[in-house]
Nucleic acid binder design. Structure first.
Lengths: 347, 347
DNA sequence: CTGAAAGCGCTTACAG
DNA sequence: CTGAAAGCGCTTACAG
């Protein structure tokens, strides 16, 4: 803080004057260079402490032409009005932030929904950081490719894509969609809806898993049960209410996120039906709240916090000039009450 | 991105050479200084576009001795293991981020729980930013005072304190505690528990409101019903289970956050009791999820996103050298199902 | 209206 | 082992 008067920050030159050496020596001593005398080092370190001197990191970073900052861009889907406050994003952010902190890196958060990420190229988002983590692909896979091809150090959370130029970390979405659907089929459900926007690559893969499970169980896919439910809560309600009102028969739903599942449960309850007795629900993500909702949520677990760590470590390797392979995190079904496999302890 | 080869970034000097002027003129033209010829300005702007030149914001900020960054420090309570992923924090972060974006400011997020904020003085958190927003006071009111007294530009979300040197924005906690308790009393509840850690200034004020309401209704305060429930979910469950196991009679609870309330509801359900029939619950904050839980949550609304904006605007005024008054946002009771005032549409 | 020059606070090859 | 000097990419008084 430059305005800090009480503990006015001293400059490297000033410390050099006090120590009777040049800035170069101070700089080397404080970065523990082998090329400076141990005695001098010790003396300088002590003086630094005494005068409360600390290297100005901004000047250092500027000189070094690096920022010490990693940008995180959440690819909020504009159409579905997803917010930063979506628990999935926030848990991911937590994992990323913790891991960056361990590496002594700062986190720059890009906020607003982004129409075209290529426009970010000239913004602070890119200029202020050493690399970028994209969470989600939105519908901008080709733009992400373009960025990666222009040598932007970046890593992307999302679905595996053909012709993908960027380093990707993501869940096994096809398997996730499959195990969720399979679980419901094994519980005897036959009219299973799929809630989610299949224009998003991850959701499309889950949808393929859903169809595969149906097929294996000899259940014919009913297109009326594929609902493009948006991630945003209010709009999710509307979509689900519409389905309920349509009288299309369904006894279960595979949702694209836990938030969507919670929204579905609330909407279903209001219509007078019960979860899981009338309609069984499986979520996706296993956000912290999933185990605390009523009923508790059966869901496909993505280890979100760990995913955040993998994203960071992958990016750092990339920045170190290493080649980094994609990572696919396995998907695991967490069985709780909402799918009807476990008896709810009264309700 | 310095590594960006495909669209190699051009420097101001290079653009100056191209334009046949000096850097000074480029600088002035691009910042729309009245001291440069309109024709020259237009020409330079066009060249900038043609050569894809954009002012290096980091050099600019360095030169200007400002960062264009605001730090946000969440005063996570270590004891109660509160996480960044707490929806309250995240919604607050959303409000702050949106408002900062409008002012073209970046957001630096400090992550880890902080034992002593004075130690932050020499970290990047402070060095990398023009000002700091603290969300919560934790138990470090005097340290916050010390920081403010050393001229750190800062603003704090929290409770009004005597001898407070910093600019504060916060809810009306005493009123909030009062209206929550009063609501339950008017519904006929008489054994109302208070869940929360009264060592935190905000919670202490809500607790005073709780006691005031009890007194007005002639209900004697029962210390066994004041439970130091931590914010963290797992630990909240433990505390609530203990109360349930103790057989201390209670028919309602005022909670210190919605997350705590959701935790309480889940715990109560598991014990075989029902909300609100057996135990009525009132939360605090009105997080997004409050209206989607089952039962939906009666809660004391804090307009969190707006609060984020007020924090930012207050800090910016401070940075402009203005004197900024504290802000107390009013508290409003949002009545939903969990308090038993509204009939749940079946359960 | 525009140029020449200093300087923000560091780091690091180059000498010695 | 340490110093003198250049330079990261800008902005802005000071001249003219």
């Amino acid at each position: 803080m430059s305005q800090n008067k009480a503990k006015a920050r001293i400059t490297m030159q000033e410390l050099a004057d006090i120590a009777g050496v040049t800035r170069g020596t101070i700089s080397r001593a404080l970065s523990d260079s082998p090329r400076v005398n141990e005695k001098t080092k010790t003396r300088i370190r002590e003086l630094a402490k005494e005068y409360n001197y600390h290297v100005n990191q901004r000047a250092r970073n500027f000189r070094l032409q690096k920022t010490g900052v990693i940008s995180v861009v959440f690819m909020l889907n504009i159409k579905s009005e997803q917010h930063m406050s979506d628990p999935f994003f926030l848990e991911m952010l937590g994992g990323i932030a913790d891991c960056l902190a361990e590496h002594d890196l700062d986190l720059f958060l890009s906020h607003a929904p982004i129409a075209n990420i290529l426009e970010l190229q000239d913004s602070r988002v890119f200029q202020n950081s050493d690399g970028v983590i994209f969470v989600g692909q939105g519908e901008q896979h080709s733009e992400l490719n373009a960025l990666a091809n222009s040598d932007t150090p970046m890593v992307v959370w999302g679905a595996e894509m053909p012709d993908q130029s960027y380093c990707r970390v993501g869940g096994d979405n096809a398997a996730g969609g499959y195990i969720a659907t399979n679980h419901l089929l094994e519980l005897g459900r036959r009219h299973i809806a799929f809630f989610g926007d299949v224009n998003l690559p991850e959701i499309a893969l889950r949808f393929s898993g859903y169809k595969k499970a149906l097929k294996e169980h000899g259940v014919k896919f009913d297109p009326r049960l594929q609902i493009e439910v948006p991630f945003e809560m209010e709009r999710a309600r509307d979509a689900i209410e519409e389905l309920l009102g349509s009288r299309t028969k369904f006894d279960a739903a595979v949702c694209s996120s836990d938030v969507m599942a919670l929204s579905a449960i609330a909407t279903i309850n209001e219509s007078g039906l019960r979860v899981p007795a009338d309609i069984a629900i499986v979520g996706y993500d296993d956000i912290g709240l999933a185990r605390y909702s009523s009923p508790t949520l059966t869901t496909v677990r993505q280890n979100i916090r760990w995913a955040g760590r993998v994203l960071v470590e992958s990016l750092l390797s990339l920045l170190n000039g290493q080649t980094v392979a994609d990572t696919t995190l396995s998907s695991e079904l967490i069985v709780r009450q909402s799918s009807g496999a476990v008896a709810a302890k009264k309700t």
